[in-house]
């Protein structure tokens, strides 16, 4: 086991090796998952500086709390949970001083409609309650399965499904309202 190259070890083995004192194992986990964790942090916070701080805090937290990993979910799910929680904690803490940017909903007749539509979608997403927003971020934007998202958010699968469904309906209503559709 000790002679297996780092890149050939699976995530669980790397975490075990890290706990056993291998000084390089956690670095390999970071290398392997950093882009996905960066993506989820950025999608959650929508602020590169904040996302950077959150993902750094999250990886250090994971380094220290590796012993809390129980093996009942994939290591990547466990990492997602730590990153998402770091982001949500930070967003809740910073909320009074750094509100989400106020966007004007776009006029669909504008020449830059596709760009503006993105802003519309993002703004509508921001307006959702946190639970619905995070379910949609993880499932629809980040590509996790409902099962994985449930594990990350530590809620039941059915809860994720209903949050996704309600969130999509609410967003659709917001976008319809803006475009003047019934």
């Amino acid at each position: 086991m000790g002679t297996t190259p780092l890149h050939e070890r699976d995530d669980r083995e790397l975490l075990r090796q890290h706990l056993a004192g291998d000084p390089d194992a956690f670095g390999e986990l970071f290398r392997r998952h950093r882009d996905r964790m960066w993506a989820v942090a950025l999608r959650t916070t929508r602020n590169p500086e904040l996302a950077a701080d959150c993902v750094q805090d999250a990886f250090i937290s994971a380094f220290r709390r590796a012993g809390s990993y129980r093996g009942d979910a994939a290591v990547t799910t466990w990492l997602h949970r730590i990153v998402v929680n770091a982001c949500l904690d930070r967003l809740r803490r910073d909320k009074p001083t750094s509100p989400l940017p106020e966007y004007e909903l776009a006029d669909k007749r504008d020449a830059h409609a596709s760009v503006d539509t993105r802003l519309d979608v993002r703004e509508a997403l921001d307006r959702l309650p946190e639970g619905q927003r995070m379910a949609l971020v993880l499932v629809d934007m980040h590509g996790l399965s409902v099962l994985e998202a449930a594990a990350v958010l530590e809620v039941a699968e059915g809860t994720v499904k209903s949050r996704c469904s309600r969130g999509r309906e609410a967003m659709a209503a917001m976008l319809r309202e803006r475009s003047g559709q019934p």
């Binding site: 979608v121 997403l125 949609l136 499932v139 934007m141 590509g143 996704c164 969130g167 967003m171």
Partner: peptide, 8 residues
């Protein structure tokens, strides 16, 4: 709703 595709 088509929202999923928009978000993706």
């Amino acid at each position: 709703t088509g929202i999923r595709a928009l978000l993706a």
